[in-house]
Simulated assay, not measured.
Amino acid sequence: MSDAIDAGGAPRPVGSYPHARRVGNLLFLSGIGPRDPESNAVPGNEYAADGSVLRHDIGAQAHAVFANVRAVLEASGARWEDLVDVTVFLTDMARDFKGYNAVWSEHFPEPAAAPCRTTLGIDALPTPIAIELKCIAAFKE
């Protein structure tokens, strides 16, 4: 048995899936990006006249994606400290890993208390974002 979570304070999913699903004491978050929950804008993106992305600011997007993950965790009854595993998808590993890693360190200053993390470089994401997180949290019983 599992419970689907719809987090009103997070950006709407871009497909037909919940923000998260709770199974026992585990919470599985769907991929969460940095889109603004109210405007759907992508922080730090600079666009050309044709709508294509000229530049992105990985720091702005990383801060926004963490805020969105927090919103889903809170809507689910979980806390930031409940995260146990994070998979990070970056569309430009060579350019963005260092900047993303700096933001990660702000949010998780103690490595021993941080969740496990895997970072992957990928070609694209379904919206004009440079980062997406897939998270698992464990509720304290």
Rank of each mutant, 00 (worst) to 15 (best):
E141A: 15
A112Q: 06
P109T: 03
R21C: 08
S16H: 07
R70N: 09
W80L: 10
T118C: 11
W80D: 15
R55Q: 03
K134V: 13
A20S: 06
N45T: 07
L125V: 07
A60V: 00
I32Y: 01
D36F: 06
A75K: 11
P34D: 07
W80N: 06
A7K: 08
F66Q: 02
C116P: 02
P11Y: 14
I136F: 03
A75R: 07
D82T: 00
I136C: 04
N101E: 14
S52Q: 05
P11F: 12
W104V: 12
V14G: 08
D123F: 02
K140N: 14
Q61C: 00
Y17A: 09
G9N: 15
G44C: 00
T118K: 14
D123K: 03
F97G: 03
V14Y: 05
L26P: 05
H19M: 01
H19E: 01
F139I: 05
H107W: 12
G31S: 06
A130V: 13
M1L: 10
I122M: 02
E141R: 13
T87S: 11
G59V: 13
P115T: 12
F28I: 13
A71D: 07
I129W: 03
I129E: 15
R95G: 10
A67C: 09
Q61S: 02
L90D: 12
L120W: 09
P37N: 06
E81R: 14
G59N: 00
A78H: 02
A124F: 08
P111V: 13
D50Q: 04
A75D: 07
V14Q: 11
R70M: 11
N40L: 15
A78M: 04
N68K: 08
D92Q: 13
V14H: 10
H63S: 00
A60G: 00
P18Q: 01
S52M: 03
H56A: 06
E132H: 07
T119E: 04
I129Y: 05
G44V: 00
R79L: 12
P18V: 07
A112H: 02
G33R: 09
V86T: 10
A62W: 09
V69W: 11
T127D: 13
R12T: 15
T118Q: 14
P111W: 03
R21Q: 11
L90V: 11
I58T: 01
V72A: 01
A48Q: 02
A20H: 05
I5Y: 11
I131T: 13
I136W: 01
G59D: 00
V84Y: 03
P115L: 09
G9W: 02
S30V: 04
G31I: 04
H107T: 08
P37I: 08
P109W: 08
E132T: 09
F28V: 15
L27Q: 02
N25G: 09
V86K: 10
V72E: 01
A7H: 09
R95L: 13
E110K: 08
